[in-house]
Design a binder for these strands. Structure first.
Lengths: 107, 107
DNA sequence: TTGTTATTTTAATAATTATTTAATAATAGA
DNA sequence: TCTATTATTAAATAATTATTAAAATAACAA
């Protein structure tokens, strides 16, 4: 279970055009991931800026990295994403999925 | 289907402590929503600041409002949230949910 | 009308974030 | 070793965002 601070960090990390694209690209790449430079080239982002964005995504726990020679491979990490989705939908319809049209008490 | 710009707007809107709490509170309240002032009081936020955050969430399409006398009721709008979740999980495991351990080509 | 309540807007400030450039580290191969 | 490659870090700047206080708007009631 994620804390609200962790969820805000994950949402902030994804709330930026380049990082959202990076994440989606890595999601599509699966566990093997993609080398940092390759991601940068694919998305037409400078290496330094790419590194900055990787750091933000890493710090939020959305991606992980492994070194392979001179290359650093980044891959999507689904744990935080799943926790974030759970947090966002947790109280949806007071816990009754699909029942979004039913009024809830106490409001 | 949401554009990436719409998704970034929705993520940005939720990527802030107060707004994340507002959204979750409204989700728990269901379609009837809650009056602006009541939300502000509940979350101990000034009316002006609350208004600023409502505007951000509204602009992202995450909440909607209806006037009732002197009160403005805000309610969660699930359409954009659902679109956002779909966008984020769209390419997960190349579209094969649960298959997150299988390596994908072209990366 | 006048006063009261509920909410929004505006303006100012403080804080955070994204991008660029230049410099630094780490690895691989000649 | 020396050089090229890959990636990260640091410093500077530009842009965006959150918060506060004050003023403005809108709806209702006396």
């Amino acid at each position: 279970m994620l804390t609200s601070t962790q969820v805000v960090a994950a949402l902030s990390a994804l709330a930026q055009h380049t990082r959202l694209e990076v994440y989606r690209l890595l999601v599509a790449c699966g566990p093997q991931g993609m080398a940092a430079g390759q991601v940068a080239e694919r998305l037409k982002v400078s290496p330094a800026n790419m590194s900055f964005h990787f750091k933000t995504l890493s710090h939020a726990g959305l991606i992980s990295s492994r070194q392979d020679g001179r290359f650093v491979y980044y891959a999507a990490n689904f744990t935080v994403m799943n926790g974030m989705l759970a947090y966002l939908t947790e109280n949806c319809c007071a816990g009754n999925p699909g029942a979004c049209a039913i009024p809830i008490k106490q409001c």
